[in-house]
Structure formats: structure tokens, C-alpha cells
Design a protein around this nucleic acid. Structure first.
Lengths: 335, 335
DNA sequence: CATTCTTATCGAATCGATTTACTTCCTGCC
DNA sequence: GGCAGGAAGTAAATCGATTCGATAAGAATG
């Protein structure tokens, strides 16, 4: 526990603590020779700045909070990688919170962020109610919404157009000759799931089909491969397979694919299948998966850049609601 | 920026700051009625404890640092999920660092952890040299090695026996009739890669084969799917395919699989293929992947439990080097 | 009733870095 | 020579929570 403080460095270098602080934060204010002496003392004593003490004085720390819905989902992992990249470039640390889609856990994460006096928060909210997020902002903590468009112009957000994505997926299925489509999704309280459904219905309407007749919703509790497989088993058990399945993400789709293949259903001959996110593994699956690609890594990068800009230049910062467009990737599962 | 301090809470409740602190940290020391009054003041003012101030006094914060080699790899994601779970249960926040296998970035991460005065560090080291880790420990920060067995008994670690795993993979390939095996791996400076190679050679020796004649090492720069595919292209270009491929992780294996299938090589008829880690996607791939399973999630959980035990009960804590055993999972790619 | 023990609370010192007002000491200029 | 202005550095106050010795008010004991 040999914690070396700025005082000991000062003593060693024969200067006052204030000067050491200047060497650390405004080196140009210090004479060349003194600076070198102090830097040497720092090295010799193995001094490491005490972040808590700095933040105490500064009012905030050099950290950002990141709250995601499912850390095991490659979509969020890619986003997180982008976030970590930018944060680390700028000397910020990332505090990770995994909400698992649970609003209570999310709230706990936000509390931890507030206690740590993070500089800002990046969050993929687990639901529509942003009251807790607003509370944070009232506390003076900047928040950027990730994969969730802000409704108000005074807030930054980065998202991908999910309505368009849903429409792309379904019109592609229609082109491939689909007549009855199952939409396998997570809880429809999740905005992404709901928006993709809206897009799906619009695409049907645009093609002159009656959404109610063509589309069947299959909501599952979570959006992982296990639930995808369960959805497959459910469809099979009920004995009335659709001729196309649109899954709200690739994990569900991969589970669905496994379930179908195990039951001897051929993809795409018997059932067409399309996922969402275009995670790395989509192209390596048993039948390579058609999907809707999102610029995940950029999502994380841009969100973090916006956040740090908002923190560092509060006067000149202009809030932005960035919306990326998704992209259809056709592979074997829909041919 | 309406930061409410303990003083204002104290004023509102008509007590001293010390008493508020007691309500926060040792509620049993405070009379029922006072406690309720203070708690109400806290609620009314929306007080949130200032973590930096606490840590400054306490000497450490309620955070743990987690440094992994590749946040985009499902193996580490699963570990991270386990870590986050336990940390969050115990009221700790997780600071995430991604070293990308780069020792310089790792060093920077450790510096950030030190500045934040994290309570402890969980790290999958990017190389064999643990000097920087030892420096941290000298500073009084507990460190648990993750997926890396500690060499010294005064340090906790959690790992999986990679020699055994490598041997399992190769003896399985031999059983399947392999005669010439390629070992596609990351840099052999990565311990996991090196150990799996040792296991592979032992299995060959045990089967009375000459490792040099049977085994060809193909080291790649990184351990992701892209490199796996490059390795496939390399093997194909050289025109001398082995009859079995052992990949040091599943990402490499999935890339290899894609590369082979695209070139019209049949798996497992022409080439048997086995990966390592048994990530979720291994079973959903084009040809479902045989692999060596590791208890990833538990790895993260146990490591964090050890770390927090070491922090919270330094007197009674007994250092442990936990070694889990891997498990062979046979699927289509080796039949 | 006086004394000891307990319990509840207070108040001041403390953690380490930053910052501001202030002191020196030069340099340059009229 | 005297004075303005700048550069370099110092000392002390500050951030907010925690802790510990001090204190006061009751309860228990003889």
C-alpha cells in the first residue's frame, strides 16, 4: 500500500505540491528545468495520480458509463468495442453495465454511474420510459442514447432506422415468394422489436397484402439463440409452419435455423429465413443467413464522439440525432 | 449541476454530517427515528453519494478493473458477463479495458485502473511477462489472473487446462483417422496457443506418432474469423491440404470452415475440423463444429468471487489457483 | 443520590489533487 | 533609477465523505 502522493513528489523535487500539479496539467506553465526535475521524481517514486482526488475537485471523473441490454450479444459487443476504442483514445475509462433488459438492473447501473460521477453515459435503454435518464441529465451528466432515437432535440442519440430495416426484410421475403410470414421477436415493449414490426407491416401494406392475414407475431421472452430454437419448436408443434420467418435479431434466427434443421425442415426450400444485425456469425451458419446489416462499430464510435464533444465543448456542442440506414444482405437462407 | 452533498442532507435533517454518514454506512449505529428522518431528507433532496469522495478517504473505490484480450470474442464476452454478474451483486462497478492483445494498450489499461484506485483487477494477460501485474500488486491492488494459471502460490488465478484440451482435440482427430494435422493458431507467445500445442504434441507422442511429421503449425497474427479464412486460403494456395485441422479457437475454426467450403473442400469428408472454446455459434455453423468446451461463464464468476474475497477478507483469504477441465464436444465437423 | 456504563450524536481532522490569490524575481523601457 | 509587466513558484483554501475522540443525556447499579 505504498501510495505515493503529490506531496512526496514535491518534497523530492524540492518544489511545492502546486507546481507538481502544474507539471501534470499545464506543463507549459512550468520552467523547463523544474519540469524535468519533477518528472524525474515522479518516475523515481512511481507516482500515479489519484483519480478520486482529481475528480473530487473537478466535480467529475474521466470515465463514461456504458449500459447495454445484453453483453453476450455480438451486436452490443461490437458497439462496446467502438465505444472502448474512442474512450481509450481520449484517455477515458469505460464503466460497463449490463442491464439484461431488466429495468431494475438498468436503474441500478445508472445509480452506480451517478455515484462514480461519470463524465457521461451511453445507454441502450431497456424500455421506452426515459425518466431515469432525464434525472441523470438534470444532475448535469450528459447522456447519449445508443440504438435509440431521441425524441427531443436537446439530446444526442445514435440509431439505425429499424422501420426501414423491418420493411427491407419483409419485402425481400415477399420477393422470394413468401405467403405466410412469422415474425419471431423479443418483447414488443423493446422499441427495436416494435419498429421492425411496423416496418414489416408497412412493407406488406405497400405490396397490397393484409398484414393480419400474412403476418403472425411470435414474441419470446428474450432475444437469444435458445429462445429462437424454442420458437421453432413451437411453430413445429402447432403443425402449421409459415413459408418464411423474419427474426428480430440474428441470435433468434440462428436458434430458429437450428430448430428447423433438426426437425428436417429445409431452409430455404421449405422455409425462408432472415435475421437482423448481420453479426459475424450470420455468414458462417449451417445455411448462411440473410440479414439486415447495421453499422454497429460505427454506432459505438459516433455515440462516444458525440458524448465527449458534449462534455468537452458544452458551449459549441450541437445536439444531434444521428440515424444510420440499414442494409439488406442476401445469403442462402432466402434463396 | 445540482450536486447535493451530505452537508445539505444533514442540515435538512437537523443532524451533523457524521450522522448522515453513519446512516449510509452503519445504519445500526443510529437511532431509529433519526435514521428515518435522514433517509427522508436523502430522498427529498435526491442525494447520491459522491463515490470519489468516499474512495479518497477509503483509499480505494468500489470498482474492479477487467482487462481482456478481445472484447469481440464470445469467449471473453461470456467471461465478462460472469464478472459483471458477481460484481453487480456485490455493489461493485466494472471498468472495462480491451487490450486487443497489445501489451502497450494493456499497460495503459492497468495505469487507468491504478489511477481509478480500483479495488482489484481481473486480467487475461496479453503475454507471459507479468511485471506490470506485479507492480500493481505491490501497490496493494489485488489481481486475479483469468484464463491464465498463476505461477506463484501467492496469487489467485482461474484457468482451464489447455494442455489437456489440446491433447483432447488431437487425440480425437487421430481417432477419426487423421494423418496430417494443421494447427492453426494465434501468436505462440500467447500462452493458451502454446499450451494447446504442447497438448497436441503430447497426444501425438502418446499415440506413437512423430509430432514433427504429423503436425504443421500455422501461426496467424490474430485469432478471429478473418485470420481463419486467410489460413484456409494459405493452405489451399500451397496445394497441400492436411486431412485434419485443429484451430486454437472457434473464431479461427469458423473462418477456416468458410474458407474450405468456399473452395469446395468437404468437411469432414476431405478435412476434419475442430475448434476450441465451444462458443454458442459453434453448433450453428454450416457444418456444426466439434470443439473443446470451457466453462467460460463460471470462469468469470469464480474469478470475481476470489477477487472480492481477497479484498474483503484479506486476513482469512487463501490464495487459490483454480484449474477447470475442458470437455470434448463432438459434432459434424469431425465425423 | 452519586457513580459507572451505554447509547446517540457531534465536530474537527483527514484523504490527495487542484486552484486562486499572492509573493518574488527578472526583464525591459522610459 | 524607477516602475510596469511577465514569469515562476508558493501557500492555503477547497472539493465531499469518513472517522474518531469528545460530549451529553439516559439507564443501570450500589
Amino acid at each position: 500500500m505504498s501510495s505515493v502522493s503529490i506531496k512526496e513528489v514535491a518534497a523530492r523535487a524540492g518544489v511545492s505540491p502546486g507546481t507538481v500539479s502544474n507539471v501534470l496539467n499545464r506543463p507549459e506553465k512550468v520552467a523547463e528545468s523544474t519540469r524535468r526535475r519533477v518528472e524525474e521524481a515522479i518516475r523515481e517514486l512511481g507516482f500515479v495520480r489519484h483519480g478520486s482526488a482529481s475528480s473530487l475537485r473537478a466535480g467529475h471523473s474521466r470515465t463514461v458509463g456504458l449500459s447495454v441490454i445484453d453483453i453476450a450479444n455480438p451486436f452490443f459487443t461490437d458497439v462496446a468495442a467502438g465505444v472502448e476504442e474512442v474512450a481509450s483514445e481520449r484517455g477515458y475509462a469505460v464503466i460497463l453495465g449490463n442491464s439484461s433488459g431488466d429495468r431494475l438492473k438498468e436503474e441500478r447501473n445508472l445509480l452506480v454511474f451517478a455515484e462514480q460521477r461519470v463524465r457521461g453515459v451511453l445507454i441502450t435503454p431497456a424500455g421506452e420510459n426515459l425518466a431515469k435518464v432525464d434525472q441523470l441529465r438534470e444532475r448535469g451528466i450528459s447522456v447519449v442514447l445508443v440504438d435509440h432515437p431521441a425524441e427531443r432535440p436537446d439530446q444526442c442519440s445514435v440509431a439505425v432506422n429499424d422501420v426501414t430495416g423491418g420493411a427491407m426484410a419483409v419485402s425481400h421475403l415477399l420477393t422470394a415468394g413468401a405467403d405466410r410470414i412469422a415474425y419471431v421477436t423479443g418483447p414488443l415493449t423493446v422499441r427495436q422489436c416494435a419498429d421492425r414490426l411496423i416496418g414489416a407491416e408497412r412493407a406488406l401494406a405497400a405490396a397490397g397484402r393484409d398484414p393480419r392475414a400474412v403476418l403472425e407475431e411470435i414474441p419470446m421472452g428474450a432475444m437469444n439463440a435458445r429462445c429462437g430454437q424454442q420458437a421453432a419448436e413451437k411453430l413445429l408443434a402447432e403443425g402449421r409452419l409459415p413459408d418464411a420467418v423474419f427474426c428480430a435479431n440474428d441470435l433468434l434466427a440462428l436458434g430458429m435455423l437450428r430448430g428447423l434443421l433438426q426437425a428436417g425442415v429445409r431452409v430455404p426450400q421449405d422455409v425462408s429465413l432472415i435475421g437482423y444485425d448481420d453479426i459475424d456469425f450470420a455468414s458462417a451458419s449451417a445455411v448462411s443467413l440473410s440479414s439486415i446489416r447495421q453499422p454497429t462499430h460505427r454506432l459505438g464510435r459516433v455515440a462516444t464522439e458525440l458524448l465527449l464533444d458534449e462534455c468537452d465543448n458544452p458551449e459549441t456542442h450541437a445536439h444531434q440525432q444521428v440515424i444510420f440506414q440499414p442494409e439488406l444482405v442476401v445469403r442462402e437462407s432466402t434463396r
